[in-house]
Amino acid sequence: MYEFDWSSIRPGLPFLWKGMKVTLYITLVAMAAGIALGTVLAILRMAKNRALAWLSAAYVNTFRSIPLVMVILWFFLLLPAVIERIFSISRQEDTRLTTALVTFSLFQAAYYAEIIRAGIQSVKSGQMGAALALGMTNGQAMRLVVLPQAFRNMAPLLLTQTIILFQDSSLVYVASLADFFGVAGIIGTRDGRQVELYLFAGAVYFVACFILSSLVKRWQNRLKGHA
């Protein structure tokens, strides 16, 4: 039988926390940027302008049909050079974190966009008509009437997607960026305690995601109660 040896975890906690901060950073930035871009994509998708609608659909469908692992590999191949130029930072900077942030923001935007589109459609027709009748422009009606309601309805879904994003961010592993899981791997490899560290990482992810998703579920039920 396997003899567990958990002695690597306690001294490794500060390092693991550093990795967790990278994970959280990627999650939060990609959530904010992803929802912003996702909203734009969702509105464009419903635009009267055919070309814009098509572009938005192409963007969303492309990202949704490629495995995240391949997307990460693609972006780590292409992005570093572009980032250096845009932000004119020197070669010495480690651009891996920035690359990861951009990758996850763009990738998640495609998933958020679909949720937001459904949310908008769920409030759109009657409300839009009423707002327009009140003399609002299309943009005003969208901004002041439709979007606030849509976001309220779909907030739980957006959060659920964010929990998925939190889990998916572990895939920066393929670009050897030291997020929470990456650090667990580094410590496990260094001390020959991979089994313990992988179990520990799994437990931490489970507890965090379980609590979050339970909260989301409760919120969702409350929203349903109101409606």
Binding site: G12, P14, F15, K18, A178, T189, R190
Partner: peptide, 14 residues
């Protein structure tokens, strides 16, 4: 390196 013991690796203070 991150875990190339004992050539180049992280100690517990990173």
């Amino acid at each position: 390196r991150e875990s190339s013991v004992p050539f180049s690796y992280y100690d517990d203070k990173q």
